[in-house]
Every structure is written in structure tokens, then in C-alpha cells.
Nucleic acid binder design. Structure first.
Length: 736
RNA sequence: GCCGGAGUAGCUCAGUUGGUUAGAGCAACGGAAUCAUAAUCCGUGUGUCGGGGGUUCAACUCCCUCCUCCGGUACCA
């Protein structure tokens, strides 16, 4: 039995995940994991938050909160977003857990004992206000070469010169803004030079199966020769090493393991954590994590973005090899390039980004996540940087996902529901159809002839049961699931998904060619057979699309009233190859059909423009904002008034907006309110509502709005407008 | 600067070791059909393959050079 360990790069817990991250290391890994689970393989897919490092302490400093608050906020937010996005992690852990610290310390101690570490002294800038040593990134000063004022750490952006950090003139700490002092410090370095030849043969052993960019990048590093690298730094946030035996007292004080050294070990810690949880529930023993990391029968696939290549092809393998104990190395590191957004790089500081959580908030339907997954899957940066645009998202959703896959499912299930109220029984004339279907598949599989000839030589006895349309369709699903699977196994996810969509195309063609809307009148038995076969295809497509659109697939299984096969962990783990079985008919006859619902909502032009307009608009957000207290004077600047709704009407071409004419006591004014999905215009006329009267006027859908209608919203986005308790409150009454 | 990747149809992208007329999806146009979210199915074009030079019988593919973009090269993660 095949066993596969899958990891995705640990996202750094100082910001929200955006679509670029999803396309890089997460969605492809999830597709792969779900695919393998459907194949009946044993899979473990682990990930978690990377929660240490100086970027987190700086972020904490800036927001005047503790590092713990930063990581809690982003860990929880990212974990939740991943869940809703449909990531099928077996565990999503975090590196701040004690178990991870233990794992990391164990590696450190072991490497020190084995002589892989050296300690070296050096001088470095120290910020006395912030109490920290300053990485190059946090020092600015005058370039010793060209005199440029804003030269960074050890490189000048103006003239491009490199120099020792300490040669920088008039250095300033970017943390406190003060001048840093020079202090001596010592650090442990890992002797990566000792692993040079081992890594060379490791990399070359994968010359045939790794992606070119991964191979070349790794070779290039090896060609330049590996050096020792510092694995500790002076910081009080991270994995402490002051309790390691045989280190002179005080020497390790205030030092933590450097993040690049410790974060990759998070994969192992997360595995141990999951296995411990399972062991406590009586499922397996607590050291069975070893079968995932120390058993040569396990394949390990590490999904990452291109910025992470050498850490997963050289540094992590060196660490695993150095640790010994049978640790396995990555079998493949399918690194993706980067995803751009509307032609530009993702950038948090410019808010040129789509955060996953914002997408989920704006598109709360679970299957909208599938639209996103599909769009990203079809645009994965597999060989070069690719581009996400909202127009493409719209086109992929409307013209492909909804129009081809969604439409086939819908037209089939609607037809079955309206005409039969269930998946139709096979008519007497086709009683043996499922049996012959299996024979047809056996014929496809056993014949040694070329694919072109395959269809021409279908045995006569099968042709008595199946017409050409039937045979072409069954051939398409048989061929398609193999090709899609083969693409997935080569980490060609875009091609795999395309291939799956082609099966849906063939299914639509079959429906057209069979014309059940005619045969239901002229030859009902034929219609029953056609729709029976279409229902089989609906079910097959639900399985085949599950790695990409798990929510939609679940909806289909639910409508058909059959078992969910979405490759979620771990319940599909039954060692049956459900993937290949999609070419065969499943047991559907007994099932009762629910009334079918649409799978995918179409994306309107308006939605696209709203989303496009959000890009690049800066929003400041801080951890403590929610708790921020304001004074009574602050509140007096906010003019809340009652107002009577005189007239309400829908805004043309807008789903969400209502145009209101209100009496404010002092006169009439127009307010555009985003409540059309919750209130009909008639419900509002005559009501006394609360408005924010001194809000800056704004233009919405080209209409001027003078003020804001107040409404409460719950977490599902349901709205309730504020009104006064008594009916006779006059317009213009103050609220305080 | 150095190292790696990329620049192909209006758009998003494939193009294996150099070998006939450079492909797919979407968009566009024409037709068939009306079960289905006006959704489907069939048919039709389109390319100085970033610029320039070279090797070869033959170059999108190999070499040189220039331009543009991305990543690595930091005590960035």
C-alpha cells in the first residue's frame, strides 16, 4: 500500500493569507491530497503557522501588543480561512506549541553533539531602546560608497554596493529611530559545507523527476559551495536554547533558534501532535509518527513557493540527513512560481491583495470557494508567474464551471427530478446495462490496440446494448479519469483539471445527442436509459471534481443521497480506488433524489467592478482597534438623528442598493443604503430610522448619498435596521 | 552586480530529446437544438514564438548579445 506524506510551507503568522499563497503552496497540495485519498492511498497532510521570528516582534512592537496576541490573531484567522476554503489538512498546527520547541531543541542538541555546529563571535548593531540586535533589514544609514542617505543594512539601493554592516555611516535603527551601538555577540552556525557532497548526489538523483526551476536553483547553490549559516539569533521570541545540557551558563541566554532552522521542523512537530491526539483517543500508538518520517516506504512531497526552494531541497534535507535515525527526504518539491494580481505583484503595504478571509466574507456561499479554487487551479503558476484577474474569475466561473460542469449536473438532475422524481430505474430492455458497462470498461482496459482503433472495434454484443453515443461517453470518462490522474501525479494540476472539464463537455454532448426531451415523449424507455447514464456521470464528475470543487461535490452527493467521496480526511481512507471506479456505474437505483439546487452562482459584472475598486485602497487595521476606547467628546462629533423614510426604491442594476428619500426634520435628503437584499422598498416607507447625519456625502452607483442608514448585522451578514421604540418620534430627534 | 526562471494568438497559458501546415481554453463569428442558470453541442479564423546576430539541410527549441518581468543571493522568512 502506498503511503504519502504531504506538507505545505508553513504560512507566517504576521498577516492574512492571500490568493497568491493559496495558488503557490496550498491549493495544489490540497488537490493532490484529495486525489490520493480518493485513490485509496494512505495520506497525511500537515501544515501550520510559523510563529517565530523578528518580523512578529516588530509587528507586535508597532501595534503595542504582545507577540502572542499577533500570532493568536493570525493563526486563528488563517486557520479558519483555510477551513472554509476547503483545505483538507489532517492537522493545522503552530510552531509556538511546546511540542515543537522540544523537537527543535532536540535537533539543535543533536547537531551540537555531532559537531555540526560551531560558535563564532561577531560585532553587530544593537538597539538599546528596543533591547535587540538589529538585522540588516532594520538598519538604515549613509552609504560608505556613494553617500546615498537611505542605504540599507549591508547593501545600497542607490549604487548597489555591498559592504559590512558596521561600515554604514550614521546608522539609524528602523525599530526605534535612534542610533544603534555596536556590541559583541556570539552565535551558533551550522556547518552546511559538511553536507555538500551528500546534497549533490541527492539533488542529482532527482534530475529526472524534479521541476527544472527547483533543480537549477539547487544546483546553482551547490555550485557556489555551501557555507556555514547562523542558526541562532539574539531575540526573546522563539525557541529558547538556554536549557540545553553542556552549554556554559549564560552563553545561550537571550538567544533563540533562527526561524529558518526551526520552522521546517514544524512539519515533524505537527505530525507528532496529531499522532498524540489520535493515541489519546486510542487510535494507534504515540510513536507511529515515525512511519511518516522514518519509513522508507513513505513518499514525502513538500509543496512550496519558489522563494522557499533551497530551504526544502538543501537545508531541510541536510538537517534530516544529519539527524539520522532513518529520516526520509523529500521525494519531490513541486515549487510553484508566483501569482500576480491584475498584472501586479501582491503587496500588503499597498493593499494590492485579495486576502482569503476577505474573499470568504464577500462570497459566503461554500461553492463560491470552489469557483475560486477552480479559477486558481486553472491559473496555477506551474512554470512561470501567472495572473489572477477578477474578470478571469468571472469568466471561469460563468463560462466553464457553471456553464459546463454545473449545467450538466443541473440539466440532468432537473430532468430526472421533474420526470421521474428520482434517478430513473433502468428499463427492462436495458436490464443488464450496468453489467455490460463493466464489460465495456474491461474491453477498453485489456485491448492492446491504439486508442484510435479502440472505439472502432467495440465487440458486437456490447453494441447491442450501447449505441455510439453511450460508447463515446463511457470512453470519455474512462480515458479522462486516467489522464487527469496522470497529470496530477506529475504535479500538472492545470492540465488535470482541464481534462476533468473535458469529461463534463463530453457529458453535455451526450445529453444533446440523446435528446431525452424528445425521447421522453416518443420512446420513454430510451429516455430512462439516457438519464440513468447521465446520473451516473453526474456522480462520477462529483468524484472527479472533488479535489478541485469539494463543496459542490458534497452538494451533489447530498442531492443524490449517496456517500460523500470528496477526499476529505480521513473518512474516505478505505483503500478502494474510487478514482478509477468513476469509469464504472455506481449503485444509484435505490436513491431518492432531492430537489436539485444550482451548484454555482454566476458572477455579475457589478461584483467584478466592486472587487476591482477595492484593490489598492489602504485600510489600516490593528489588533487592538476593537477594544479602542473613545471619549465622550469623540462621540459628540457623531451626529445620529431619527429620520422618516418618505420614499424608497430599488437602484437600477444594483442588487444591494436602495435609494431612500428621508425627512430629517430639517429637510429632505437622499440616502443610498446597501440593504436591498434584506428589505423591500415598501417595508421601509413610513418607518422612522436612525441615520448618521454628518457623514461625508458619497457616490454609490452614480447616485449621491447624504448620510448613512444604521443597521445591525450578524456574522452571517443578515441585516436589521435600527428604528425607534415608539412610533411617534419626530424626524430629526437627536440620539445620544 | 552575481545565480536561476520567464517573455508564444485579443486574454490566460501548453509546447517533451531541434524535424512537416506552432497548440488548448476563454473571448469573437456562423449554424443546430430548446431538457438546463440564454446554459449546451457543431463549425470557423488568428500568431515578425521579446529585439538583434550566429550554428544547422532544418531553430519557439541550441549558442551569443541586448531589453523587460519575477525569485534567490541579507542576522528576510
Amino acid at each position: 500500500m502506498k503511503r504519502t506524506l504531504i506538507t505545505s510551507a508553513l504560512p507566517y503568522a504576521n498577516g492574512y493569507l492571500h490568493l497568491g499563497h493559496c495558488a503557490g503552496a496550498y491549493l495544489p497540495a490540497d488537490i493532490y491530497a484529495r486525489y490520493l485519498r480518493l485513490k485509496g492511498e494512505e495520506v497525511l497532510y500537515v501544515c501550520g503557522s510559523d510563529e517565530h521570528g523578528v518580523a512578529i516582534t516588530i509587528a507586535a512592537e508597532k501595534e503595542k501588543v504582545s507577540p502572542r496576541e499577533i500570532i493568536d490573531k493570525y493563526h486563528e484567522a488563517n486557520k479558519e480561512a483555510f477551513e472554509k476554503f476547503g483545505m483538507s489538512f489532517d492537522i493545522y498546527s503552530r510552531t509556538s506549541l511546546p511540542g515543537h520547541h522540544d523537537t527543535a531543541r532536540e535537533f539543535f542538541r543533536d547537531f551540537r553533539e555531532k559537531g555540526y555546529l560551531v560558535d563564532l563571535e561577531e560585532e553587530q548593531f544593537y538597539d538599546e531602546d528596543a533591547n535587540m540586535f538589529l538585522p540588516d533589514r532594520y538598519v538604515e544609514g549613509t552609504c560608505p560608497n556613494c553617500g546615498y542617505d537611505h542605504a540599507r543594512g549591508d547593501q545600497c539601493d542607490n549604487c548597489g554596493a555591498y559592504y559590512d554592516q558596521l561600515k554604514l555611516k550614521n546608522p539609524l535603527s528602523l525599530v526605534s529611530g535612534k542610533s544603534p551601538v555596536v556590541r559583541r555577540t556570539s552565535h551558533w552556525y551550522m556547518r552546511f559545507d559538511m553536507f555538500q557532497s551528500f546534497l549533490e548526489s541527492y539533488i542529482e538523483s532527482h534530475a529526472g523527476d524534479w521541476k527544472d526551476n527547483v533543480l537549477q536553483q539547487s544546483r546553482s547553490w551547490l555550485k557556489q559551495g555551501l557555507n556555514e549559516r547562523a542558526i541562532t539569533r539574539d531575540l526573546n521570541w522563539g525557541v529558547m536554547i538556554d536549557d540545553i545540557p553542556n552549554i556554559p551558563p549564560g552563553k545561550a541566554k537571550g538567544k533563540v533558534l533562527y526561524v529558518w532552522f526551526e520552522a521546517v521542523l514544524g512539519y515533524i512537530s505537527a505530525t507528532k501532535e496529531l499522532i498524540n491526539i489520535l493515541a489519546e483517543q486510542g487510535k494507534g500508538s504515540s510513536d507511529s509518527w515515525k512511519k511518516w518520517w522514518q519509513d522508507p516506504e513513505t513518499r514525502y512531497i513538500a509543496f512550496i513557493g519558489k522563494d522557499n526552494i533551497v530551504f526544502h531541497t538543501l537545508i531541510f534535507p541536510a538537517m534530516l540527513h544529519g539527524k539520522g535515525e532513518g529520516y526520509i527526504l523529500p521525494d519531490n518539491v513541486p515549487a510553484n512560481e508566483f501569482l500576480n494580481l491584475e498584472g501586479q505583484k501582491f503587496s500588503k503595504s499597498r493593499n494590492w491583495s485579495i486576502d482569503l478571509r476577505d474573499f470568504i466574507a464577500d462570497f459566503p456561499e461554500p461553492t463560491a470557494n470552489d469557483s475560486l479554487r477552480y479559477t486558481l487551479a486553472m491559473n496555477l503558476p506551474e512554470t512561470k508567474d501567472s495572473d489572477f484577474t477578477w474578470k478571469d474569475f468571472q469568466a471561469r466561473t460563468n463560462n466553464e464551471l457553471a456553464a459546463i460542469f454545473g449545467n450538466f449536473v443541473n440539466r440532468t438532475l432537473q430532468f430526472a427530478y421533474k420526470n421521474f422524481g428520482k434517478v430513473p430505474d433502468l428499463p427492462k430492455s436495458s436490464k443488464w446495462l450496468t453489467l455490460f458497462w463493466k464489460n465495456l470498461i474491461s474491453y477498453f482496459e485489456s485491448s492492446g490496440i491504439s486508442d484510435n482503433e479502440l472505439l472502432g472495434r467495440v465487440p458486437e454484443e456490447l453494441k447491442k446494448i450501447f449505441n455510439d453515443n453511450d460508447i463515446n461517453l463511457i470512453y470519455a470518462v474512462w480515458k479522462g479519469n486516467r489522464e487527469a490522474g496522470a497529470f496530477y501525479e506529475r504535479f500538472r494540476f492545470r492540465d488535470g483539471v482541464s481534462e476533468t472539464m473535458n469529461i463534463a463537455r463530453a457529458a453535455n454532448k451526450y445529453f444533446n445527442d440523446e435528446e431525452p426531451w424528445n425521447s421522453i415523449k416518443t420512446d420513454p424507455e430510451k429516455a430512462e436509459k439516457t438519464i440513468y447514464i447521465c446520473c451516473q456521470l453526474v456522480r462520477s464528475l462529483a468524484v472527479l471534481f472533488a479535489p478541485v470543487t469539494p463543496h459542490a461535490s458534497a452538494k451533489i452527493f447530498d442531492t443524490l443521497g449517496i456517500e460523500y467521496l470528496t477526499g476529505d480526511s480521513p473518512k474516505d481512507d478505505k483503500s478502494e480506488d474510487y478514482w478509477l471506479q468513476t469509469a464504472l456505474p455506481a449503485d444509484l437505483e435505490a436513491s431518492k433524489l432531492k430537489e436539485p439546487e444550482l451548484l454555482f452562482a454566476k458572477i455579475e459584472d457589478e461584483t467584478v467592478s466592486v472587487q476591482q475598486a477595492k484593490l489598492g485602497v489602504k485600510i489600516e487595521e490593528k489588533v487592538k482597534d476593537v477594544q479602542k476606547l473613545i471619549s465622550i467628546e469623540d462621540f459628540s462629533g457623531i451626529h445620529l438623528r431619527t429620520a422618516k423614510v418618505l420614499k424608497a426604491e430599488k437602484v437600477h442594476k444594483s442588487k444591494k442598493l436602495l435609494k431612500l428619500l428621508v425627512d430629517t426634520g430639517e429637510g429632505e435628503r437622499q440616502i443610498i443604503a446597501g440593504i436591498a437584499q434584506h428589505y423591500e422598498p415598501e417595508q421601509l416607507t413610513g418607518k422612522t430610522v436612525i441615520i448618521l447625519a454628518n457623514l461625508q456625502p458619497a457616490k454609490l452607483m452614480g447616485l449621491d448619498s447624504y448620510g448613512m442608514l444604521l443597521a445591525a448585522s450578524d456574522k452571517d451578514g443578515k441585516l436589521s435596521i435600527l428604528t425607534t421604540d415608539t412610533e411617534d418620534m419626530p424626524p430629526g430627534a437627536e440620539i445620544h
